[in-house]
Design a protein around this nucleic acid. Structure first.
Length: 984
RNA sequence: GGGCGGUUAGCUCAGUGGUAGAGCACCUGUCUUACACACAGGCUGUCGGGGGUUCAAGUCCCUCACCGCCCACCA
């Protein structure tokens, strides 16, 4: 009864099964345990209404990979998931849904809208969390948080969004309001009139960071503003003709002699027929345009600044309203859209002969990053947060190295941004969000008034009462008519508190004490300022501690052509499609293999229609090469495991022996009588000991096993490891060390390739092949033990990358504890004791000779035939291995008759096949080989003949060159000798 | 205007001073009892241009070009 696993690996069956298995056993949940060292992190909460895209798939592959390794290393791992209410994005979607039903949020009012929004969020939200589970993410779902949970009453309200636990009140909203009140009390919140970024579509202010500048081809229009005194006046240049309706002046550079006479005089603003002053201001660059700038304080931040310096340019005249339409202040132009007004202004000025010229000009136009609408800079009264002090605290944390960045370069970027930080407009004219916890007394606060429709008008001179809860009465006058500020907070204000608010802040919870600061923040570079910097600011402010010690910035996933991925352009892929096509393990491993510290990842894919873009919504993903490669790897792993399991004999399997007890009597099975019992050699015991359930996770934070105690029963008895065994153990140790080293540096790609090549190129291609005859021999005990030990150790090493398939195979291994799981087995360490340089050198030579023979056989056209081969020279040769692997009969004597020759591992290799050796072809082949040798030799000898090299290069390098030279010379001599032979 | 990243085989990319690598693609064989999602073999490169440092440069420095990203109030 051999252990059997199914003939092909079926991700669709295995993945849900194993995921449930892990969850049911609670491997993901973390509890405060002072005896254990925590490793904690919070995920960047995706939008609650979001869906998984490739960026998420990459980000969470990285998350879960790190999390799983840390868990196996014995840390008390806490990875906290959750979602962001995403004010604007969600409100947009709900608006859309309402419109589809013929409803309008403005008609229904705030409360009713929020009801719809909650309902909609409950229905459509949280999909992305389920998608993360499909990817295999082992997060603590019991801790799932939502940045806007104030609407949530007790108990689960739906069956499965975020596993039914999201809807219990987590207190996040309270934390947000508390933070705002604390800021306010520190004097960091102020009401200011500024030019802000207004989205006419979303009808709200957005922050500078949410404005996306796009270079657009436009014009620079030159207009003449005639002098008020009848003179020529001045020609101004502008990219926004429509704003001229609100001009209150013209500015020129103080040093610009062309305009010296004009300064202090007035010009006539055409169309509006208004006299406006010309002022000199240092902001103006005399070399740009005409050197004269029209000043529109209500619609341009620079102009606003200029007007602050020149009172005669005040007050501003607002000619563009909240919807982007021209206001009554622009007289005849009122009601036109921005675009219409631009056309009409230009046409009207042209008609009056005042359009001097139109120059093509490209410039950056701000667009709202959520909806793509052109941002309108408008003068607005808003709540701002002063950021200087907060930023300085964050800077101190980064400069002191309490927060590190990987890759390094992002550290300086963050510092630069924090140094130049500007105050943050935190109020938003939305309904979906945390309503600003400022309360106004309608009885005594003259700064507020009610508009006709009942809406609250909040002026600049208000006396708000900051309070998380609604105050019963006004502390000033005792009045009871209190109204809350109508605006909500910027979504990023709430997410800025994520690491501590999710752990219970402002309460001093055990979670906070134990898991905070967290260890890692894994994120994309697009939110380095928007979010990452701000979390450091709030963490430092409220907890006096950095929120995380390490920021890991991952690449952006792009298309093969380097474009941004986008569903609407047909260049986006749903990662679930990849999982469906190739399985979650392949998807993860493929993505992990692409992780370097580069900026972008180019993702290769082909659609059914043949192209790299989908032709429409019906087009299906046909192929994603980078993932497919790893699907093939999974198949390889599955098959090699199947082979191993099929060859472990009849005595093990699911028998009772050895399971849990650690020492059994199950016969000559794999587990024998405890770790390394069969062997006098302790090396294998190292791996086996790691595998012993009794030792699992015994050491905190390290998986480095101690050498096993000598087994008194079998001190030196039993079969000895043979070369191939020593080699594969050594190679495994090398791989394990390399994987750990790479992961410590977050070089996931590097680690992936080490795993890939070890399993495929070394274990499967050589060790397993060499093991075949031994497994069929009379006493296969030893080779069975080695092969399964290496496989088992590999499964542990690879588990964070390939959680599902490794768990599935591991559980099928004989001797594994059915009460346990791979997910909590100890992670292999560097295993230096297993390294065996001599074995590696001997195997390298064996492999080189084998390849040389295979090569000659292929060229002779007899790749499958067993042939007679002469290997000449003093070098040691693993004859039996070579005979098996190359299908050859080896003799160490000179061949009789003609043969094809080459040189490998310092030995002459000749394949003799009667009648097959074409003399001229063989001569040509040898000449070609000689050419190669000559080329290499030339390089080496130019170095060795260089005295500078000999005197300056380190001895070992020179020695190596000499050795290479020697080998090449010998190779040349042997080849030339063969050539002579053919010639003669 | 500043900053950052990239430019290596037909394609996508590894490779942080010591005789240039992987996967795919391509060519030749093979259904060898784990695997054709495989096995064996083969082909493929002025490492963007120029200069410098060094005994030695794909790798370090300078410079130029092109591609991409971020930041920035040139109307």
């Amino acid at each position: 009864m051999s252990t059997e696993i199914s003939k092909t690996y079926e991700p669709k069956e295995v993945e849900p099964k194993q995921y449930e298995f892990w969850r049911n056993r609670d491997y993901f949940t973390a509890k405060v345990d002072p005896a254990k060292q925590p490793f904690s992190l919070t995920i960047p909460p995706p939008n609650v209404t979001g869906e998984l895209h490739m960026g998420h798939a990459l980000q969470h592959t990285i998350h879960d990979l790190i999390v799983r390794r840390k868990r196996m290393q014995g840390f008390n791992v806490m990875c906290l998931p959750g979602t962001d209410h995403a004010g604007i994005a969600t409100q947009m979607k709900v608006d859309q849904a309402l419109r589809a039903q013929g409803l309008d949020r403005r008609d229904m009012g705030r409360e009713k809208f929020l009801g719809h929004a909650r309902e909609w969020t409950l229905k459509y939200g949280g999909t992305i969390l389920r998608q993360l589970q499909a990817l295999g993410c082992s997060y603590d779902w019991s801790r799932t948080r939502f940045t806007l949970d104030e609407f949530v009453e007790e108990g689960p309200q739906t069956a499965d969004w975020a596993l039914g636990k999201l809807y219990t009140r987590s207190g996040y909203a309270r934390a947000v309001l508390t933070a705002f009140v604390k800021f306010y009390e520190k004097g960091w919140i102020y009401r200011g009139e500024r030019i802000v970024n207004w989205c006419p579509q979303c009808q709200t202010v957005v922050s500078d960071l949410e404005v996306e500048h796009r270079e657009l081809q436009s014009n620079l229009w030159h207009f003449r503003y005639p002098g008020a005194d009848g003179g020529e006046g001045v020609v101004v240049a502008t990219t926004r003709p429509e704003t001229m309706l609100g001009d209150t002046g013209v500015a020129v550079a103080p040093s610009d002699t062309r305009y010296t006479d004009l300064v202090g005089k007035k010009v006539v603003l055409p169309l509006m027929e208004r006299e406006i002053p010309v002022v000199a201001d240092h902001h103006v660059d005399a070399s740009f345009g005409t050197g004269a700038v029209k000043v529109t304080p209500a619609h341009d931040p620079n102009d606003w600044d200029i007007a602050q310096r020149h009172p005669e340019l005040m007050p501003p005249i607002q000619v563009i309203g909240d919807t982007g339409a021209i206001t009554e202040a622009a007289g005849a132009y009122a009601g036109l859209s921005r675009q219409e007004a631009r056309k009409k202004v230009v046409a009207d000025l042209d008609a009056r002969g005042l359009l001097v010229k139109i120059e093509p000009h490209t410039h950056a136009v701000g667009h709202h990053d959520k909806c793509g609408t052109v941002i309108e800079p408008l003068l607005k009264l808003q709540w701002f947060a002063a950021c200087r002090d907060l930023a300085d605290q964050a800077l101190a944390a980064i400069r002191a190295g309490r927060v590190d960045y990987t890759p390094e370069r992002f550290r300086q970027m963050e510092i630069d941004w924090l140094e130049g930080i500007r105050d943050w407009c935190v109020s938003r004219q939305l309904w979906w969000g945390h309503r600003i916890p400022l309360w106004y007394c309608l009885q005594c606060d003259s700064g507020v008034s009610r508009l006709s429709k009942g809406a609250l008008q909040v002026g600049s001179d208000v006396k708000p009462i900051p309070s998380v809860e609604k105050p019963d009465t006004c502390p000033h006058c005792g009045g009871s008519e209190m109204e809350q500020d109508p605006d909500v907070l910027d979504t990023w204000f709430s997410s800025a508190l994520w690491p501590h608010a999710t752990l219970g802040w402002p309460e001093a919870t055990d979670d906070l004490g134990y898991f905070y600061p967290t260890d890692l923040m894994i994120t994309g570079r697009d939110i380095l300022y928007l979010w990452v910097a701000r979390m450091i600011m709030t963490g430092e402010e409220f907890l006096d501690k950095e929120p995380y010690r390490q920021v890991l910035v991952h690449a952006t996933v792009m298309t093969e052509e380097g474009q941004r991925m986008s569903k609407s352009l047909g260049t986006g892929v749903d990662p679930l499609e990849l999982i469906r096509l190739y399985g979650a393990d392949a998807t993860r491993f493929g993505l992990a293999s692409l992780v370097t510290d580069s900026q972008d990842i180019r993702f290769k894919m082909r659609w059914k229609s043949g192209g790299i873009k989908a032709t429409g919504p019906d087009d299906e993903l046909a192929r994603a090469e980078q993932i497919e490669q790893m699907r093939n790897f999974c198949t390889k792993l599955w098959n090699v495991s199947r082979f191993v399991l099929m060859n472990l004999g009849d005595s093990q399997g699911s028998g009772a022996g050895g399971q849990g007890s650690g020492a059994g009597d199950q016969g000559p099975g794999v587990r024998g009588q405890g770790p390394g019992a069969i062997l006098g050699d302790q090396r294998l015991g190292l791996l086996l000991r790691e595998w012993n359930p009794g030792t699992q996770n015994s050491e905190l934070g390290t998986s480095e096993p101690q050498p096993p105690a000598p087994n008194p029963q079998h001190p030196t008895s039993g079969p000895q490891l043979e070369l191939a065994d020593r080699w594969i153990l050594s190679r495994f140790a090398a791989a394990s060390a390399a994987v750990n080293d790479a992961l410590d540096r977050y070089s996931l790609g590097e680690a992936s390739w080490v795993l890939y090549h070890f399993l495929w190129d070394e274990f499967a291609d050589w060790y397993v092949e060499l093991a075949k005859p031994r497994l069929r021999s009379e006493d296969p005990t030893l080779v069975r033990e080695v092969i399964v030990a290496v496989l088992e150790a590999f499964l542990r090493l690879a588990h964070p990358f390939l959680p599902f398939i490794t768990e599935e195979i591991w559980q099928a291994l004989p001797g594994t504890d059915p009460k346990s799981a791979l997910i909590v087995q100890p992670y292999p360490g560097a295993l230096a004791e297993l390294r065996d340089e001599e074995a590696e050198a001997r195997m390298d030579a064996m492999i080189e000779v084998t390849r040389a023979i295979r090569n000659l056989k292929a060229e002779l056209g007899v790749p499958l035939q067993t042939v007679d081969v002469s290997v000449m020279g003093d070098g040691h040769l693993e004859t039996a291995y070579v005979e098996q692997m190359a299908k050859a009969r080896i003799s160490r004597e000179r061949p009789e008759g003609q043969a094809a020759h080459t040189v490998a591992a310092g030995m002459e290799v000749a394949v003799a096949v009667a009648g097959l050796v074409d003399v001229s072809a063989e001569q040509a082949r040898i000449r070609k080989e000689l050419d190669g040798v000559a080329k290499d030799l030339k390089g080496v000898e130019s170095k060795l003949s260089n005295e500078q090299f000999l005197s300056r290069a380190p001895a070992d390098i020179i020695e190596k060159q000499r050795r290479i030279q020697q080998e090449l010379l010998e190779k040349r001599a042997k080849l030339e000798e063969r050539l002579q032979l053919f010639a003669g």
